[in-house]
Amino acid sequence: MHRAEPPSGRIDGQTHLFGVRVYYEDTDLSGVVYHANYLRWFERARSDLLRCLDIDQRAAHEAGEGAFAVTSIDLRYASPARLDDVVAIATRLEVRHGASFTLLQEAFRDATLLCSARVRVAFVTPGGRPRRLPPAWQDALATLLDPSGTAPAMDLEKAQS
């Protein structure tokens, strides 16, 4: 039986790092990454961050507790990525509330910022109403905040290693 391990990110201090390579399917006719693909990459990085924090979204959904829903996203495009580029997605927790949190996600090629997103995610009941994050999840997310309770500044050098 053949088994391949999927790509996985890592938490470095208070930043989650996730790598992606630009494939032909990610580009448009001009060879530039199609704008919607940044959303897909950011979603993969967010899902991987939660996995790294032992937040089991699937188990919560299957138990009828709820699921995460993106409630807002603000994207800013800075520079294009192209075929075969290696892109690092750096994710930091900016704010954590009882039922939601806000992340800053940035895509880099080396030290060049390609795209950034400010994403607010809420935990909602199966009926769509906000629901307080389980205490263990709140604790896990708190590890991404510095001792003052705020998000640290992005360290571009760490984001590239």
Rank of each mutant, 00 (worst) to 15 (best):
Q14P: 01
Q14F: 00
T15N: 00
H16Y: 12
L17A: 11
F18N: 04
F18K: 09
R21M: 12
R21T: 11
V22K: 02
V22D: 05
Y24L: 14
E25P: 10
E25M: 11
D26K: 09
T27V: 05
D28R: 03
D28T: 10
G31A: 00
G31V: 07
V32Q: 07
V32R: 08
V32I: 15
V33G: 08
Y34D: 01
Y34G: 03
Y34R: 04
A36Y: 00
A36I: 01
N37C: 07
Y38C: 10
L39M: 09
L39K: 01
R40M: 09
R40Y: 04
R40C: 04
W41V: 05
F42A: 10
L50N: 01
L50Q: 08
R51F: 14
R51K: 04
R51Q: 01
D54N: 04
D54K: 02
D56H: 12
R58W: 10
R58A: 11
R58C: 09
A59V: 13
A60D: 04
G66Q: 09
A67E: 03
A67T: 14
A67N: 11
V70K: 06
T71D: 02
Y77Q: 05
A78E: 12
A78N: 06
S79L: 04
A81F: 05
R82W: 02
D84E: 12
A88E: 05
A88W: 05
T91P: 07
R92P: 00
R92L: 09
E94I: 09
V95K: 03
R96E: 15
G98H: 05
T102D: 15
L104S: 14
E106T: 12
E106A: 07
A107F: 07
F108L: 15
D110A: 14
T112K: 03
C115F: 09
S116Y: 04
S116W: 03
V121W: 01
V121G: 00
V121L: 04
V121K: 02
F123L: 14
G127C: 09
G128H: 13
G128L: 13
R129H: 08
P130T: 10
P130V: 15
R132A: 13
L133M: 10
L133E: 08
P134F: 06
P135Q: 14
W137H: 04
A140N: 13
A140C: 07
L145M: 12
D146G: 15
P147M: 10
P152T: 08
P152S: 14
